[in-house]
Amino acid sequence: MVASGTRDRAAVAAKESSAPRRNAAYRSTVGIKVVMAVTGLLFLTFLVLHMAGNLKIFFGAESFDHYAHWLRDIGAPALPHEWFLWIQRGVLTLALVGHVWAAATLALRAKRARPIGYAHRPKVQGSYAARTMRWGGVIILLFLVWHLLDLTVGTVNPVGNPATPYANVVAGFAPSRWPVTLFYVLAVVAVGFHVRHGLFSALRTLGQRTANGERWARVAALGFAILLCVGFLVVPFAVLVGWVGPA
């Protein structure tokens, strides 16, 4: 390895030349991962609240619509109409930019780190969830565009009336629109896989470092993944089988 006669000098030279600048940790691969982890946890928080809100649909049209309109007045009277919503949208958009930037940076780094691949390369251990983070993320991003056009803006929704979110949901998941529902299901399952590896990975990035903690992190990641899948899929399922029908 290092020639023995020059070892000390080489060590000193190496330490001086590659000495990290102050707070270089922010720009390191771990720093990039922290951006990924923190923005991911923000999305997870949003998703859990979003899912809980969706379940209001089982309390009837009036309850669901009332809840949806209340979202526009969170923080009132301190915050004017829809201000909270726009602040939240701004924060989530910034988080999305950070999350995708971190993913792209790490993916490019990974590509650069192995210029010549293996001729023979079976999958060893990495879970399906871990292996599909990048493409799963792309699927979720594409779905997000559709989802906003469908149930927020309403341009691709059969009803598309911001005043009647309940009617929008029932019309959106109508049996005749099964390809849309199928896309929704695929995207939610992709979110489940993404959260399954993402939450575990985020906790590790933020310093989870004991064997016991690792077991809990895996349980929590799987638990949130299942919770989100069930919570988000029960709504289109209920519309499809008629538990939730036109008001």
């Binding site: 691969t29 771990v30 991962k33 790490l106 780094r109 990974a110 060893v124 871990a130 983070m133 575990f200």
Partner: peptide, 9 residues
């Protein structure tokens, strides 16, 4: 070297 993505390989 690349960055870690906690895949466990």
């Amino acid at each position: 070297f690349g960055g870690c993505t906690n895949t466990g390989e």
